[in-house]
Design a protein around this nucleic acid. Structure first.
Lengths: 148, 148
DNA sequence: ACTATTATAGTAAATGAATCTCAATAAAGA
DNA sequence: TCTTTATTGAGATTCATTTACTATAATAGT
């Protein structure tokens, strides 16, 4: 399998963009993160390692990573976007606790069928889907059902 | 079935909040809207009817409507939130065209089973889910596949 | 109905994520 | 190496949303 860097470089070439240290460093950092991240966290993480990259560059690079399928947006309703790298992972969805914010991942192959059905039914070319299930984890559930 | 106003008034009482003309007028307006809306649109619509309600009040009222199950957030990736009233409607999901922004609604009862399964598997109390499928409608699909 | 209490409204200012401007830099091809 | 031009960083800007503050008005208790 191609590395994420190769995927990105192919994309850069295809789009007649330019390879830059900044973009590739950001990409590397993203793939070192286990789990989800947001722009601020990514920026701080780079800063702590002494990597000089501006937030503007991060904001500018993310749409490229998304466009070539390496990263996707994940909304956790916190007023700003979260992201995760998806290259090399099987597609998964999120179960989020509204109390503590815990995120669990689960797969649901049934959604592939749904996509096919929608494509047939409406003539759409389906690019993908976002599914997020919300609720309360065992701990938070208890806290809500029997408040102190 | 209780009216949406009754649902809201019950909620207000339960939460020890106060009934106000503004909140009830905003609620009424939302339920007169067919389809989705955003804060700006709702504000203008009220303004055109000569109803004096501030945007701040709209922003403050929406979380209440959401909390009592009358309204839900629907994000259409346009840099701000969209909403829809859901009381009295069967649950539905959205198929969105990334080209022209068209929104189609569809139902998927299979997700109820998914919720039950997740509840069992992780011990969660499930509140609900957001599913959005993205792609290109027949028209936009053509425009992309064979650019002028 | 009157009064006291306090949630809520409106206005304007503040916040904060994301985008844009612009001059300086650096990547890619000739 | 030279030229062209995409990209960067810094800061300014935009715009949705939230907040602070004061006046108003809803509720509960007399």
């Amino acid at each position: 399998m191609k590395s994420e860097l190769q995927v990105f470089q192919d994309y850069i070439r295809r789009r007649d963009l330019r390879r830059t240290r900044e973009r590739e460093r950001i990409l590397q950092e993203i793939f070192e993160i286990h789990g989800h991240f947001d722009v601020d966290g990514l920026y701080l993480q780079l800063k702590q390692k002494g990597v000089k990259v501006s937030k503007a560059s991060i904001y500018r690079a993310l749409p490229l990573f998304i466009d070539c399928g390496l990263v996707r947006e994940v909304d956790f309703n916190e007023g700003h976007w979260h992201y995760e790298h998806i290259y090399g992972h099987s597609h998964h969805n999120h179960l989020r606790c509204l109390g503590c914010g815990e995120i669990l991942e689960f797969e649901n192959p049934g959604l592939d069928h749904l996509e096919e059905q929608l494509a047939r039914q409406y003539g759409y070319y389906i690019k993908g889907h976002h599914l997020q299930v919300e609720g309360y984890c065992p701990g938070c559930r208890q806290a809500i059902e029997s408040p102190a």
